[in-house]
């Protein structure tokens, strides 16, 4: 366990040594400061379209405003935050595998699976802290301003982090196989920005074609490829108070994560460095 903690700590240090995570935290701080200033300067009436919160209808409008603010944070956080995180984390494994670096690491009393777990927990941990900082900050500001303390919003911290963890497990696998950060990054972006959104709307695509083969291919890929697009929709839904409407994308993505990590450990354990 100590070994995993040490590798985790080192991965966190490496992450912060890259300026991207610091920039991420800096942008988050700026967003929080801007919201704090806006909330301090503008009254609830102004924010909710000059409607005084007196009736149920007015409360509903206020909740809509709160929901809109949450979406304003969560949607870019899911897209932009994950984009930056993937960019920064893609080099963790190739850097570790560099000649001279890996020799020192593998010569220590530490198993190769512990190294993979440490890298995974460290990378995911950094992203979790960054996302938690912004989401928790906004949740506090909204609570203080509107007295809306909807704890379910905090679930989005976990769904965004989970989406990253799934892609990060793929980054680790590709990094172990190819030792290329570019390839790991490209594949992650391919899934995140292209494959997953396309597979999410496979029903609509299939309506355009009668091909049985296409249907089988799309369905097959749908269950194999991590469902980051649907995780994004779930996150948005959580932001507006809708909760998790479907557990299947979470479950199948978790299976992908476990399989990717298991395969990474198997390949890493067999390789010579």
């Amino acid at each position: 366990m100590n070994n995993i903690i040490e590798i985790t700590k080192q991965t966190i240090r490496e992450a912060f040594a890259r300026k991207i995570f610091i920039m991420f935290a800096g942008v988050s701080s700026l967003v929080l400061i801007l919201f704090a200033i806006t909330f301090a300067a503008v009254g609830i009436d102004d924010l909710s379209g000059s409607i005084q919160v007196q009736s149920n209808r007015d409360t509903g409008i206020m909740y809509e405003v709160v929901g809109a603010i949450k979406l304003f944070i969560v949607v870019p956080l899911f897209g932009g935050g994950l984009f930056l995180s993937i960019f920064s984390a893609s080099s963790f494994i190739p850097n570790m595998l560099e000649k001279g670096n890996i020799d020192v690491l593998l010569s220590k009393p530490i198993s190769r699976s512990q190294i993979i777990f440490g890298k995974f927990i460290g990378g995911t941990g950094v992203v979790f802290v960054n996302i938690a900082y912004l989401v928790l900050g906004i949740w506090l500001l909204i609570g203080l301003k509107f007295s809306v303390w909807d704890a379910s919003f905090l679930l989005s911290i976990f769904t965004i982090t989970f989406a990253f963890a799934v892609l990060y497990s793929l980054i680790i696998l590709i990094g172990i196989i190819s030792q290329s950060s570019i390839l790991a990054m490209m594949l992650s972006y391919l899934i995140f920005f292209i494959l997953s959104p396309i597979l999410d709307i496979r029903d609509k695509i299939m309506m355009l074609s009668d091909s049985k083969v296409l249907e089988i291919v799309l369905e097959g890929f749908y269950y194999i490829v991590p469902k980051t697009s649907e995780l994004g929709t779930i996150t948005s839904n959580i932001a507006v108070g809708g909760g998790i409407y479907d557990y299947q994308p979470i479950f199948t993505s978790a299976v992908f994560l476990i399989l990717s990590l298991a395969l990474s450990i198997i390949i890493f354990s067999k390789k010579d460095y």
């Binding site: 670096n101 020799d103 010569s107 009393p109």
Partner: peptide, 19 residues
């Protein structure tokens, strides 16, 4: 691998995290 607690190693062209 536990035996490596009693082993030291200086690899050729070793690298350490630059930070």
């Amino acid at each position: 691998y536990e035996i490596r607690k009693r082993v030291g190693y200086l690899p050729e062209n070793h690298k350490f995290p630059p930070y």
